[in-house]
Simulated assay, not measured.
Amino acid sequence: MTSATLTPGKTSADEIPWNPKVRQKKTVVDWIVDIFIVALIVLIVVAIIYPIWFVIISSVSNVDAVNTGKVTFWPVGFSLGGYARVFQDDRIWSGYMNTIIYSVVGTALNMVVTIPAAFGLSRREFKPRRVVLFLFTFTMFFAGGLIPNYLLFDSLGLIDNWLVFILPGAISVWNLIIARSFFETSIPEDLHDAASIDGLGYFGYFFKIVLPLSSAIIAVLALYYFVGHWNDFFTGLVYIQDDGKLPLQNQLRAILLANQSNLTNTGGMDILQQREFANQIKYGVILVSTLPLLVLYPFLQKYFNKGVMIGAVKG
Rank of each mutant, 00 (worst) to 15 (best):
M1V: 05
T5S: 06
L6M: 08
G9W: 02
G9M: 07
S12D: 14
E15A: 14
I16F: 07
P17D: 05
K21S: 12
V28I: 14
V29L: 15
V33D: 10
L40F: 12
L43N: 09
L43T: 13
I52N: 11
S58C: 09
S59V: 05
V63F: 09
V63H: 07
V66S: 07
G69S: 11
K70T: 05
V71N: 06
W74Y: 13
Y83A: 00
D90R: 10
W93I: 01
W93Q: 03
S94G: 10
Y96D: 01
T99E: 06
T107Y: 01
N110L: 00
T114P: 00
P116W: 01
P116H: 04
R130Q: 11
F134K: 01
T137C: 14
T137F: 13
F142N: 12
G145P: 05
L146A: 13
L152A: 15
D154W: 01
G157A: 07
I159L: 15
D160G: 03
N161V: 03
W162R: 09
V164H: 00
A170S: 14
S172F: 08
N175Q: 09
I178N: 05
I178P: 04
A179Y: 05
D190C: 03
G199V: 10
L200Q: 13
G201P: 01
G201L: 01
F206N: 02
V210I: 09
L211Y: 02
P212F: 01
L213K: 10
L223H: 00
Y225R: 04
F226R: 02
H229S: 03
F234R: 11
G236N: 12
L237H: 15
V238F: 12
Y239I: 11
I240K: 05
Q241V: 12
Q241N: 15
D243R: 15
K245M: 12
L246W: 06
L248E: 07
Q249T: 14
L257V: 11
N262G: 15
N262T: 11
N262P: 06
L263P: 06
T264L: 12
T264G: 06
T266C: 09
G267H: 03
I271E: 10
L272Y: 14
Q273P: 00
R275I: 06
E276H: 13
A278V: 11
Q280D: 07
Q280Y: 07
I281E: 01
Y283P: 02
Y283Q: 02
V288W: 00
T290N: 03
K314L: 12
